[in-house]
């Protein structure tokens, strides 16, 4: 009893210390490092969103960048062409991301859920190619001159502004995910991931909850996209390719599928590792691929220290929902 409360208090203390350090970081850091960390927070949000799909519900989404693109382009087009204020573009982006999540997710999830992987991959390509071909989306050169946003009367301009904006959004996303995980909905995802048939026998409709996970992931991705658009002020189709999706997936898997602190760790790793090995830049994706294979063989539950829970490993049955077949 005292041991667990000591551990809980120690981890609370560590979290508080870490947050304090992150809030004070801009006082000591150069603009370069501020930028790196802003990117890391950004990937934290994306990875937490994808984790709902992959970690909580056990589904594979290989086109996550498409939702990110939908959010970014919605904000980009609405602010530059129609001069809509940034904050009003946010609900539009979320709605559009949710809608496309349903359109893509529903046909794929009604079948074998592994079809979702390839359908999302195809969807990612459709979005990228469409963005590249339409004049509305600025074709290959994309959209530029996206105005800096004003949030509650405060105009966001400097790198420090965006550092704090993304830090706060990352924290909010994290807390939201934690609430979701320990709710009725989060449990339903876990039941389906562990044993789809047993969950169905308890009156839980697996299709409905898989679709919900997919749509929640899509909305988080779309929201991240809106912030991406105003931070970068310019967006182009090549930021939303397959490799972007793989990178986010890697963040989720590296740290710890389904475990929130692990996902945060993973997001930091995929941003900081390439910084640490700039001279091997061309090796990046080769190493990422090798890392994925190695992780699946030796540590499928991710790098974050194993707690009480483990990845469902009980044969193909865990995701397939059958035993002996």
């Amino acid at each position: 009893m005292t041991a667990t409360s000591f551990r809980a208090r120690a981890s609370q203390g560590a979290t508080a210390g870490l947050l304090l350090a992150l809030f004070l970081f801009p006082r000591v850091a150069s603009n370069y490092w501020l930028d790196v960390f802003t990117s890391a927070f950004f990937y934290v949000i994306l990875a937490l969103g994808l984790n709902v799909v992959v970690g909580f519900a056990g589904l594979l989404d290989l086109g996550y960048a498409a939702f990110f693109a939908i959010g970014a382009y919605t904000t980009g087009i609405l602010t530059t062409v129609y001069h809509v204020p940034f904050l009003l573009t946010v609900p539009a982006a979320a709605a559009l991301a949710a809608l496309s999540g349903v359109v893509i997710g529903a046909p794929a999830l009604r079948l074998r859920s592994d079809y979702l992987a390839i359908v999302t991959l195809g969807f990612g390509e459709i979005i990228r190619i469409t963005a590249k071909n339409l004049t509305l989306t600025g074709s290959a050169s994309g959209i530029y001159g996206i105005p800096r946003p004003t949030v509650f009367g405060h105009a966001l301009k400097t790198q420090q502004d965006f550092y704090y904006l993304l830090l706060i959004l990352a924290i909010v996303t994290y807390l939201a995910m934690r609430r979701l995980e320990h709710s009725r909905v989060g449990r339903a995802w876990k039941y389906i991931r562990e044993d789809e048939d047993a969950a169905a026998a308890m009156g839980i409709d697996p299709f409905r909850y898989k679709l919900l996970a997919f749509v929640v992931g899509a909305v988080v991705g779309g929201l991240a996209g809106t912030v991406f658009a105003v931070r970068m002020t310019a967006i182009a189709p090549e930021s939303f390719g397959f490799m972007q999706s793989v990178l986010i997936l890697l963040a989720v898997i590296l740290g710890g599928l389904g475990r929130l602190p692990g996902v945060v760790l993973g997001a930091f790793l995929i941003v900081l590792l390439p910084e640490a090995m700039r001279e091997f830049a061309s090796w990046r994706y080769f190493l990422f691929g090798a890392l994925l294979i190695a992780m699946m063989h030796f540590r499928p539950e991710g790098l974050w220290p194993a707690g009480r829970r483990k990845m469902p490993q009980s044969g193909r049955a865990a995701l397939n929902g059958g035993d002996g077949r």
Partner: peptide, 9 residues
């Protein structure tokens, strides 16, 4: 279920 299908973890 015949072969016990609990959510083991």
């Amino acid at each position: 279920f015949q072969n016990i299908r609990l959510f083991k973890t």
